[in-house]
Structures are given as structure tokens and as C-alpha cells.
Simulated assay, not measured.
Amino acid sequence: MIRKAILSDIDKALLITKACAREMIHNHIYQWNDAYPNKKAFETDFNRDEFYVLEHNNTVIGCITISTFMDAEYHDVPWLTPNDNNLYVHRLAVHPEHQNKGYANELMQYAETFARKNNFNSVRLDTFSQNQKNLSFYEKRGYKRLSEIYFERQSAYPFYCYELVL
């Protein structure tokens, strides 16, 4: 079940993203670290009412941010649709113990359905260029790779911007 997060879900999401970061680092994917994702990001998501969690057997096992806010890093991206009616996905995570069971698909389907029901033009996101699993995941869902952005506190490698036109 996917639901809006409550305040206590922030710490649960941090545990999930830290577990994901450890798993990625173990696999030589340096996408997330101690600086990101962080509590401040989840608090901002929560305060904007854009933070969702996935529960399985009464345990939070995943999270996603579905936002209407366009981050400054995205302003120079050559998006496929105008910048006035779009959703942005951030901090999608499923605890490593629950990965490869379709939960990330469930979270993305929720975001895409939300976007369609609310007449958004597209869903936009970025993902790490060195994470082949994520690149394939979004491309199989029909997302188009557009350009690169950099988050130097996370990695010297670029992040690819993607958009799904609805």
C-alpha cells in the first residue's frame, strides 16, 4: 500500500536510503552517500505534502517524492514539454531486502497514475549515469534521456535527466 508519509516516516525513509546507499557502494555505484539523501530533504518533501511511502506487512519498505517543484539544476535542461505543468520524482528507494520484487515499479506506476489523473504534461526525474539498473528501469518505462546535470557533493559523474510525456 502506498500512502502519504507521516512525520515518523522520515526516519524510516532515511534507514531505507542508507541501506540502499550501502548496497550501491558495495556494487561500486557511488550515487548516494552520507550527504544525500538527508533528513532535510525528506523534511522538505513532508512539509510540501509530496512524500509517500510504500508499506508491506505494516512495515515501510520504500519511499518516493512526487513533487511539482522544479529544482534549480533542472532549469537549463531541454525538456520535451513546457515548464509549467510537470511532476518531478525524487528519492525513489526500496529497501535492499525487498528489491527485485516489483515494488519500484509499483511506486513509479503510482506517480505516473497520479500525474495522469491530475492532468500533468509529464513526469521528470534524474538518475545516476553509472547506475545501469536504474537507466534500464526508466528507459523500459518509456522515459527519454535528455541531458546531464551534476551534483558534485554526490559524484563527479553526471546524472541523466529523463522525461515521460503523458
Rank of each mutant, 00 (worst) to 15 (best):
residue 155 S to R: 06
residue 9 D to I: 06
residue 26 H to M: 12
residue 128 F to T: 10
residue 133 K to F: 11
residue 18 K to E: 14
residue 43 E to T: 14
residue 34 D to I: 09
residue 44 T to K: 15
residue 119 N to F: 09
residue 8 S to A: 13
residue 109 Q to P: 11
residue 135 L to E: 07
residue 99 Q to A: 01
residue 31 Q to I: 02
residue 99 Q to I: 04
residue 109 Q to T: 15
residue 73 E to Y: 11
residue 144 K to Y: 12
residue 102 G to I: 08
residue 115 A to H: 03
residue 109 Q to D: 15
residue 161 C to T: 15
residue 44 T to S: 13
residue 160 Y to S: 13
residue 52 Y to T: 07
residue 98 H to F: 15
residue 118 N to A: 07
residue 40 K to R: 15
residue 148 E to F: 04
residue 79 W to M: 02
residue 92 L to R: 04
residue 110 Y to F: 14
residue 123 V to S: 02
residue 141 R to P: 08
residue 17 T to K: 08
residue 102 G to L: 03
residue 131 N to V: 08
residue 94 V to K: 00
residue 20 C to P: 00
residue 17 T to I: 06
residue 80 L to F: 05
residue 160 Y to E: 11
residue 160 Y to N: 14
residue 149 I to H: 04
residue 137 F to D: 01
residue 163 E to C: 03
residue 24 M to H: 11
residue 127 T to M: 00
residue 35 A to W: 10
residue 131 N to F: 01
residue 143 Y to I: 01
residue 58 N to S: 13
residue 110 Y to P: 00
residue 132 Q to W: 06
residue 154 Q to G: 13
residue 77 V to W: 02
residue 11 D to L: 08
residue 71 D to E: 13
residue 53 V to W: 00
residue 157 Y to I: 12
residue 40 K to N: 13
residue 119 N to Y: 11
residue 111 A to T: 09
residue 161 C to K: 09
residue 134 N to V: 10
residue 105 N to R: 06
residue 139 E to R: 10
residue 94 V to D: 01
residue 141 R to L: 12
residue 60 V to G: 03
residue 52 Y to M: 00
residue 67 S to F: 00
residue 69 F to H: 15
residue 27 N to D: 10
residue 97 E to N: 15
residue 14 L to M: 10
residue 135 L to A: 08
residue 51 F to E: 05
residue 55 E to L: 05
residue 164 L to W: 06
residue 83 N to P: 13
residue 99 Q to E: 06
residue 13 A to T: 15
residue 103 Y to D: 06
residue 84 D to R: 08
residue 92 L to I: 13
residue 46 F to K: 04
residue 46 F to E: 08
residue 56 H to R: 12
residue 37 P to R: 00
residue 80 L to D: 02
residue 29 I to A: 00
residue 68 T to I: 14
residue 123 V to E: 01
residue 27 N to K: 12
residue 124 R to Q: 06
residue 38 N to M: 00
residue 24 M to R: 07
residue 116 R to S: 11
residue 113 T to S: 12
residue 55 E to W: 03
residue 126 D to E: 09
residue 96 P to S: 06
residue 127 T to S: 05
